[in-house]
Design a protein around this nucleic acid. Structure first.
Length: 185
DNA sequence: ATATCGATGCCCT
DNA sequence: GGGCATCGATATG
């Protein structure tokens, strides 16, 4: 596969990885979708490297290409990939445009509408069958990534749902996508 | 269309 | 005990 992504892709700053992942196809058989929304976290005050340093610090600080899964608000999982092997970094996958395995996604999610299957990090994780046991594994052991066939337009905005470092435009959205979470710009 | 709110677990003081 | 990188249901313009 000419456009397949390897571990080396993640050996750079989280901002570059987050931007580069937008437009890529994410596969976790039998499901697949186009990544339309990501967020970068590094050593900033909103990052788990800072706010959960004792537990998540090692994983986020000195690795790249590993899966990081955490529970939020007691009931939702969020799927991340670590980036930048020489410094803290991770990318949160926030939304997909569903492409394959929609029926499996529907049964996991318990909803029918395509637009509601993977729009938002908790929904995305549920639709793909993400589990906490994946955390710490090589991301590419559980998922496959392919670059987009053509360059994509990406727009940035502040990150969603955080209360610190809200001024940083570290959210990346595929321009014009109806499958991104949050407000339509 | 936006607003509010309850559910829930984990990591931290 | 407090604070979340959230979602879905409900209530109201």
């Amino acid at each position: 596969m000419a456009r397949g992504i390897t571990d080396r892709f993640f050996e750079r700053p989280a901002l570059e990885v987050a931007r580069g992942l937008v437009g890529c196809t994410l596969r976790h058989a039998p499901c697949a979708g186009r990544i339309v929304e990501t967020e970068a976290y590094a050593g900033d005050p909103a990052s788990h490297f800072v706010t959960r340093r004792p537990s998540a610090g090692a994983l986020l600080g000195t690795t790249s290409g590993l899966t990081y899964v955490y529970t939020i608000y007691g009931m939702h999982l969020c799927l991340n990939v670590t980036a930048d092997a020489t410094g803290p970094g991770a990318v949160l996958l926030r939304a997909l445009e569903p492409l394959e395995g929609l029926d499996v996604m529907r049964s996991r999610r318990g909803v029918e509408a395509v637009r509601d299957l993977c729009r938002g990090p908790g929904r995305l994780a549920q639709a793909l069958g993400v589990t906490r046991a994946m955390s710490g594994r090589r991301f590419l052991d559980d998922f496959a990534l392919e670059r987009p066939a053509r360059p994509v337009s990406v727009v940035t905005s502040p990150r969603i749902g955080i209360s610190h470092a809200t001024e940083l435009p570290w959210r990346f959205v595929l321009e014009g996508s109806r499958f991104a979470s949050g407000r339509v710009a």
